[in-house]
Design a protein around this nucleic acid. Sequence first.
DNA 1: CCAGATGCGGCATTACATCA
DNA 2: ATGATGTAATGCCGCATCTG
Length: 341
Amino acid sequence: MVVEKEDLGLSLSLRRFPEEINRPSSLLQLNLMPPSSSFSTSLPFNAHKASSNWIHNFPPSLGGESEASRVVAAGAETRSLFKGIDVNQIPSSPTGDCCEEEVGGVSSPNSTISSLSGTKRNSSERRDINNNDQLVALNNNINGDHEVEIDDRTTSSHGIISDEDDGDGSRKKLRLSKDQSAVLEDSFKEHNTLNPKQKLALAKRLGLRPRQVEVWFQNRRARTKLKQTEVDCEFLKRCCENLTEENRRLQKEVQELRALKLSPQFYMQMTPPTTLTMCPSCERVGPPSSIPSTTTIDRVRSRQVTATAHHRPGAAAFDPWASARPIITHRMFDGLLQPRS
DNA sequence: CCAGATGCGGCATTACATCA
DNA sequence: ATGATGTAATGCCGCATCTG
């Protein structure tokens, strides 16, 4: 697998904790988001529509012209694998027929058409039919001239459908070659869903069944989402830790205050505020915020300030989410804020 | 307008290949 | 040999769209 885990296309920026928060370099950034702005693993979207806007641009340029290709870290390395692959050239079938014309005439080795009783088929069976697995036969026959370099050590197990894979009903797992994975990965970076034409073209290019391409994209989306979920969980975990810490601190403070309350000197030591300020919003009165807060008692005074300071811009009220909130959370809603094109 | 068919993606799960 | 891991593949479901 040429694609590393870190190359899943997700992005994350996690702020570190309060002691580091003021340092500009304290942003912990993980690149876990796909470059496509229309993509959000946290938000379901109509992939039919989402994929339709690149139909005219498909196949994605593998020569480095596309914007998305430039931004991916592994792009250069990946693209180098595609030398000699003419994405616009459809491999010619031995029969010279177009794939669409093949659809009706050739049966898929894995197709269950012949076993159907005429009642409603399950989705997989429908896909086998609808996704033109009949093209498989075509692709099976073009192994000799497909353009992706195949590791000859395991050619039959690298996604190229060979005759021995057919018909026995066994669930042979085909390992995609590095080049095939790279091409799929690059396509995924362009868009994470495929329309039928794109799927067919990609399948034909790679010598795979359309169903295999479809499954690869499905699994790839699942991996991306899983990665995003892990990121979200990490974020929530940090929030929980912050809240726990704040709760512990407040509990301790309450204990201190209760202990002081028992002492009559507590009230004697409290100096009345010289000036009172009133919040224009809630009209609460509080002491001036310039009082230095070092002791617990001082914090008692200043807490009133904090309680009213939330109405003033720049108020430093406690925000348990702030120190753990990754920038990713903003991007998670990009799909809601940006109209889909 | 409506019911059924179709096509697709999401999701959970299985099964297999690979590796330490 | 074996368990862990990664991932291709399967089955089912929901939703949107098409069609008669």
